[in-house]
Amino acid sequence: MSKLALYLTQTYVQRALLVGVLVALCASLLGVTLVLRRFSFIGDGLSHVAFGAMAVAAVVGLSDNMLLIMPVTIGCAVLLLATGRNTKIKGDASVAMISVGALAVGYMLMNLFPPRGKSNISGDVCSTLFGGTSILTLSNLEVRLSIVLSIVVVLFFILFYHKIFAVTFDESFAAATGTNTGLYNLLIAVIIAVVIVLAMNLVGSLLISALVVFPALSAMRVFKSFRAVSVCAACISVICAVVGILFSAVQGTPVGSTIVVADILAFGAFSLAGFLHSL
């Protein structure tokens, strides 16, 4: 306990908590609509795309990776999500295709043209996928950027909540009765890409898909209205992020995987609660 209190006074732990909570909050809010549209894998897919883009940026020698990663990921998100359900290739298949493709191409490029001054490629790849310790070594700029973007995402979710519901529940009906579904699909896709790039930089691509999927699924076990599911998913996600970060700080486990384990435990608990309730 005293160890925990000591950690809590450290700036880097406070920052990790703040950013972790914000990213978890954003991811879980968007996760509800992704899960309900059968697009759970989009988080995973897009983070692999971001990884591929990062590899290209490193090979080309761009000074700021974000300049390439952000537009490429947003482009892919728009391609996958904003085209809606009428595409020729089924949604999940195209996600898998783009995801694996980007991962393979990125990894190959990094091996063919090792970026200068970096010899440990598999270490790099590993921390991209699993997050490593980057959330504990955030710069001031990164912290500020995540705070601003998180506020934008949460505001977007609140202001567009009813539109997201309408478009998610029944896209055809919404379009038929005059809702601009194309515009909202586009906005949702862009926001998701932003969240994923943010989160991948901070916590790794493995974690981001878990943050997107688990809280929404857990909340859906127990709650029965869209609003309750959204609120509950956000709470679960935030609590698990806090618990995971504190546990990993004390025990020295990897941050990303610790948060995922917390999310899995929460999912187990909610499944049990849902089961008991239905008896």
Partner: peptide
């Protein structure tokens, strides 16, 4: 309620 969305 989402039936009213088209007019919003």
């Amino acid at each position: 309620l989402s039936g009213c969305q088209g007019r919003q």
